[in-house]
Simulated assay, not measured.
Amino acid sequence: MGKYDELRDFLRHQRLAQVTLTFAEVAGVVPGGLPPSAYVHRAWWANEESGTHSHARSWLHAGYRTTDVNLTAGRVTFTRAD
């Protein structure tokens, strides 16, 4: 089981086309929370399926993409991929 599997499963159970969560809410779903880079680097939230970005694969495999990241407010919006 990967660190971000619970985030994937959480998003899979969502019925909304868009889900906006605070970083604290996302961290609450991920065992051990989010790394410091998630709070300061927009690139951490990029929709990259290749490489070592298992966190991005978690929401992509749940059928979502990040569409808005607000580092100042500490929130992210996931939107269902078409």
Rank of each mutant, 00 (worst) to 15 (best):
His55Pro: 00
Leu34Asp: 05
Trp44Val: 01
Val19Gly: 03
Pro35Gly: 09
Glu25Trp: 04
Tyr39Leu: 14
Tyr39Cys: 05
Arg65Pro: 00
Ala81Val: 15
Gly28Leu: 03
His55Asn: 09
Ala38Asn: 06
Asn47Trp: 13
Arg42Thr: 04
Gly33Ala: 13
Val76Ala: 03
Gly74Phe: 09
Val40Gln: 10
Ala43His: 12
Thr66Phe: 05
Phe10Cys: 01
Pro36Gln: 11
Phe78Ile: 04
Ala17Val: 14
Glu48Asp: 13
Asp68Phe: 06
Thr22Arg: 12
Gly33Met: 13
His55Met: 03
Pro36His: 10
Val30Gly: 11
Ala38Trp: 08
Arg75His: 09
Leu21Arg: 03
Ser54Leu: 06
Ser58Val: 07
Val69Arg: 03
Leu60Glu: 05
Ala43Leu: 12
Ala24Cys: 06
Ser37Trp: 08
Thr22Ser: 15
Leu34Ala: 07
His55Ala: 12
Asp9Thr: 14
Val19Leu: 07
Ala24Gly: 08
Asn47Val: 12
Ser50Ala: 14
Ser54Pro: 00
Pro31Ser: 15
Arg80Tyr: 09
Glu25Met: 06
Thr66Gln: 07
Glu6Met: 08
Val69Asn: 02
Tyr4Ile: 05
Ser50Ile: 04
Ser58Gly: 02
Val30Arg: 08
Gln14His: 08
Leu7Met: 08
Ala27Arg: 03
Pro36Phe: 11
Pro36Arg: 11
Gly33Gln: 12
Arg15Ala: 07
Gln18Ala: 15
Ala73His: 11
Leu16Lys: 15
Thr52Pro: 00
Ala43Pro: 01
His61Ile: 00
Glu25Tyr: 05
Leu16Val: 15
Pro31Ile: 15
Thr20Phe: 10
Gly32Arg: 11
Thr79Asp: 05
Arg80Gln: 13
Thr52Ala: 09
Thr67Lys: 02
Gln18Phe: 11
Ala46Lys: 12
Gln14Trp: 08
Ala27Gln: 04
Glu49Gln: 12
Phe10Ala: 01
Arg65Cys: 09
Val30Asp: 10
Ser58Phe: 03
Thr67Tyr: 03
Asp5Ala: 09
Thr77Glu: 10
Thr72Lys: 14
Phe10Gln: 02
Arg12Met: 11
Thr20His: 08
Thr67Arg: 02
Tyr39Trp: 14
Gln14Ala: 10
Thr22Leu: 11
Leu60Val: 06
Trp45Ser: 02
Ser54Met: 01
Ala38Gln: 07
Asp9Pro: 00
Ala81Glu: 14
Pro35Ile: 10
Ala17Cys: 10
Lys3Glu: 13
Phe78Gly: 02
Ala38Met: 08
Asn47Ile: 13
Val76Met: 04
Asn47Thr: 13
Asp5Glu: 11
Met1Gly: 12
Pro31Met: 12
Arg75Phe: 05
Trp45Thr: 01
Leu34Met: 11
Arg42Phe: 04
Glu49Asn: 10
Gly63Ile: 05
Ser37Pro: 00
Asp68Glu: 13
